Computed example of a mutant assay.
Amino acid sequence: MEQPIVRSSVGITLVGGGAARPEDLDESLAHAPCLVAADGGAGFVLSTGRVPEAVIGDMDSLRPEARERLPRERLHAITEQDSTDFDKALRSVRAPLVLGVGFLGRRIDHLLANFNVLVRRATQPCVLVGKREVVLAAPRRISLELAPGSRVSLFPMASCAGRSVGLHWPIDGLEMTPAGVIGTSNRVAQRHEGPVELSFEGSGMLLILPRKALSAVIDALSSGA
């Protein structure tokens, strides 16, 4: 088993080199105050007046001017080219929760690769935070406090079946696969009271929710429900 570069008893905000906004970083740090950058994400962190506790990646996206502003002991180069910087960073940290900023948007191939990492590294809870949405690998069971009508999208990265309570279109009895039945654009039933309950028989399901659901997701993951 790989030894972590960063181990934190509080949440980690992990910053990538994709589309990110200062307000995304501010909100994530309020929940996950340990700040780590994946390669070129360090440049965005520095632009906000902060210095990451660690920078992890192959360092091919870290600009020389940014490298010069970072303490040498905080740079952790992983030079192999068989994985993305997000993968290198996520597998190198241990925390109750990781919030990923700068991993949604810009390039579709990067986005798909990041979704792949989410489900392969699902033992480390991680939520990707974007301008309009949050994305996570769904745990086997999760209970979410969501408003009636809120969008709840499910996309399987592998064959996966599950059950639901509180969705407008229940998923009970569906075998979802990437090239078959999927569960996008579902929503919370209008007359449903109480939390939305989701359970899955296997791993590999992506859960995609509106950005305003971030606090509900963090609460659900923290409770282990």
Rank of each mutant, 00 (worst) to 15 (best):
77 A>K: 14
80 E>I: 00
92 S>H: 07
50 R>L: 14
137 A>I: 00
69 R>S: 12
120 R>N: 13
53 E>Q: 15
89 A>Q: 12
105 G>V: 03
68 E>D: 15
76 H>Y: 03
55 V>E: 07
50 R>I: 02
49 G>F: 07
104 L>S: 06
101 V>H: 09
108 I>Y: 15
62 L>R: 09
97 L>I: 06
55 V>R: 12
131 K>R: 15
44 F>N: 06
117 V>D: 06
82 D>H: 14
114 N>C: 01
92 S>D: 04
113 A>H: 02
103 F>A: 03
51 V>G: 13
56 I>R: 06
126 C>P: 07
99 L>G: 08
117 V>M: 06
106 R>A: 14
80 E>V: 02
99 L>H: 11
105 G>C: 09
46 L>K: 05
122 A>D: 12
94 R>E: 15
41 G>P: 02
47 S>I: 01
142 I>V: 13
85 D>P: 06
103 F>G: 04
84 T>M: 05
120 R>T: 13
112 L>R: 14
102 G>V: 00
56 I>S: 01
57 G>K: 01
127 V>K: 07
140 R>N: 09
60 D>I: 00
70 L>R: 10
60 D>G: 05
140 R>S: 13
69 R>M: 13
128 L>Q: 11
90 L>V: 11
139 P>D: 03
123 T>Y: 13
79 T>S: 14
